[in-house]
Nucleic acid binder design. Structure first.
Lengths: 142, 142
DNA sequence: ATTTACCGATTACAGTTGTAAACTATGTTT
DNA sequence: AAACATAGTTTACAACTGTAATCGGTAAAT
């Protein structure tokens, strides 16, 4: 029952389809040639796997297909962030996000938006986050 | 020259060693039994792979080894966050971080620390982040 | 001294991922 | 009509992952 994941190479393809859809395999391949030294066959393989995983839909159009995303980029990014945060103790989510912040270039409006979110969250923020790690997988004292 | 990555299952082992080291394979296995239905052999395989990848050091102690981390958790988490952000347009780093923020439980002091970082970043923040995606992989107008 | 328990190392084996060639069928060009 | 180009599909194959059994050696227990 595990949700199929989008692998890094597959993600390259998804980004193209998220940006432009419907789109053909040849167009996807042409776009990706700017970044990846992939043969057309490689791109086709990745597209095929994404269709099988239910990440892309394939609409027949003549003798070829028009591909479109079956999942949104937002949802996919969200799942990726959840996967990341699931790997650290809940108490470390703060410093992890802080690290990302420090390592990213953000615009003034990005930062203001973040401030707004933080301001809101402060209204209901706990004094302390509870750790739910099993004993031995983080340094919190249970 | 690719840096070997820590797989999700291997990450479970790393978390134990980051928390307690030096530590033996049996101790690691015992701790993880709380969370994973792994046989001792499975844990040993993962430990072996981590040693081979240079993520753990193995110090002989009698007829067994004491394992310790060869990489820090901070550095590893940092690389994981970089990998995540490399998958989205630089212009979307802000909303991505915002999403993580919204989906996380953070303490008051976490939020205040974030505010401090943001305040500092605002001093040198650009009005707009430049996108460096190849054409077709994001919706920015180049 | 044997037997037993336990250690790391080797082998196993299917599924995923990265990367692509070969194949089949159908349009297109000459 | 024959040759060619092109679309998707099938097959390939090594590396990595998840999960574990088995093996070979040694320390401990009888």
């Amino acid at each position: 029952m595990e949700e199929p994941q989008i692998s890094p190479s597959e993600w390259e393809v998804m980004r193209v389809v998220w940006t432009t859809s419907p789109i053909t395999s040849r167009e996807i391949s042409t776009i990706l040639n700017e970044k990846k030294d992939w043969k057309l066959a490689t791109t086709k393989t990745l597209i095929g796997r994404l269709v099988k995983k239910g990440m892309l839909t394939a609409e027949p159009n003549g003798r070829q297909y028009d591909y479109s995303p079956a999942v949104t980029e937002e949802k996919s990014v969200e799942e990726a962030t959840e996967a990341l945060l699931s790997q650290v103790c809940t108490k470390k989510a703060g410093v992890t996000i802080q690290m990302m912040l420090e390592n990213s270039t953000l615009s003034l409006s990005d930062l203001e938006a973040l401030e707004d979110v933080i301001k809101l969250k402060k209204e209901t923020a706990p004094l302390e986050v509870v750790c739910s790690c099993i004993p031995g997988q983080c340094s919190c004292v249970h």
